[in-house]
C-alpha cells in the first residue's frame, strides 16, 4: 500500500460512487493483498481470511453511494477489515462454546520457544519480537511499518485516539530496541 497515493484512493472513491465496477476491480487488485495480510493477522485462518476479505469488499460495493471521496478510503478499508475480522472471531468463539462444535482452534498459534534459537538472523528475531508485542500494539505498529498507514488512518481503522496510536508505536519501537540491545549490545541507547 506504500505505493498508492491519496489520489488513487480518491479516484477509487469516485469510481465507487459512480458504480464503476472496473474501478472497483482495480481497487481490489491494488488493496486486497494488504487487507488479506491484515485480516490474516487477526483470524490466523485461511478460510476465514478469504471469507472476511470478500464480505468486506461486497459490503463496500453495497454502500458505494455513501462513500465520501474527501475522507480516507484507505482508512475505511482497514477499519472495515478489522471490524469484520473481529466479528468473525467473536462468532467463532460463540460457536466454540457450543458443545456440538468440538474443535475451536486457538486464534494465536505461538511458535515453541526454542524454534527460534537456531537462527542468528536479526530479522527473524525482530519478527518474533514483533509477534510478541501486545496484540493492539503489534497491530498499530504493523499497519504503520508494513502497510504505510498514517497515524490518523490507524486511529480511524482501530477506533483509537491519535495520541494512543503514537504511544503504541513509540512503545513498540522502545520494546524492540530493548530486545535488540539484549541480543546485540551495539543497540544500546548510548551506542
Amino acid at each position: 500500500m506504500h505505493a498508492l497515493s491519496v489520489d488513487d484512493f480518491r479516484q477509487w472513491s469516485l469510481d465507487l460512487q459512480a458504480s464503476d465496477d472496473r474501478g472497483f476491480a482495480a481497487l481490489y487488485t491494488a488493496t486486497s493483498p494488504a487487507l488479506h495480510r491484515y485480516i490474516h493477522s487477526i483470524t490466523r485462518d485461511a478460510e476465514a481470511t478469504n471469507d472476511v476479505l470478500q464480505e468486506l469488499y461486497v459490503k463496500l460495493w453495497n454502500v458505494r453511494t455513501t462513500i465520501d471521496p474527501d475522507r480516507s478510503l484507505k482508512a475505511l478499508l482497514f477499519q472495515m477489515a478489522r471490524n469484520f475480522a473481529l466479528n468473525h472471531e467473536r462468532a467463532k468463539r460463540r460457536r466454540a462454546s457450543d458443545p456440538l462444535d468440538d474443535h475451536a482452534e486457538p486464534a494465536d498459534s505461538a511458535l515453541p520457544a526454542d524454534a527460534l534459537l537456531d537462527t542468528n538472523q536479526v530479522e527473524d528475531r525482530l519478527r518474533a519480537w514483533i509477534d510478541e508485542l501486545p496484540p493492539r500494539r503489534r497491530e498499530a505498529f504493523c499497519l504503520s511499518r508494513f502497510e504505510g498507514l498514517s497515524h490518523d488512518e490507524i486511529a480511524k481503522a482501530m477506533d483509537l485516539a491519535p495520541k494512543t496510536v503514537n504511544n503504541h508505536i513509540v512503545l513498540a519501537l522502545q520494546t524492540l530496541r530493548t530486545r535488540l540491545a539484549e541480543f546485540d549490545p551495539s543497540f544500546r541507547l548510548d551506542a
Binding site: 476491480a25 481490489y28 487488485t29 486486497s32 493483498p33 487487507l35 488479506h36 495480510r37 490474516h40 493477522s41 485461511a46 481470511t49 478469504n50 476479505l53 470478500q54 469488499y57 461486497v58 536479526v122 530479522e123 527473524d124 525482530l126 519478527r127 514483533i130 509477534d131 504493523c142 511499518r145 508494513f146 513509540v170 519501537l173 522502545q174 524492540l176 530496541r177 535488540l180 543497540f187 541507547l189 551506542a191
Partner: peptide, 27 residues
C-alpha cells in the same frame, strides 16, 4: 536509536499468509 530500530524492522514484516486472496472475478 528508535529510528534505527524502525529502519531495521523494514525486513521483519510478519510472514505473509500462505495463500493468495481470492481472484477478482469471484468478487
Amino acid at each position: 536509536a528508535l529510528a534505527r530500530v524502525w529502519v531495521l524492522a523494514e525486513a521483519a514484516a510478519p510472514a505473509p499468509p500462505p495463500f493468495a486472496p481470492p481472484p477478482v472475478e469471484d468478487l
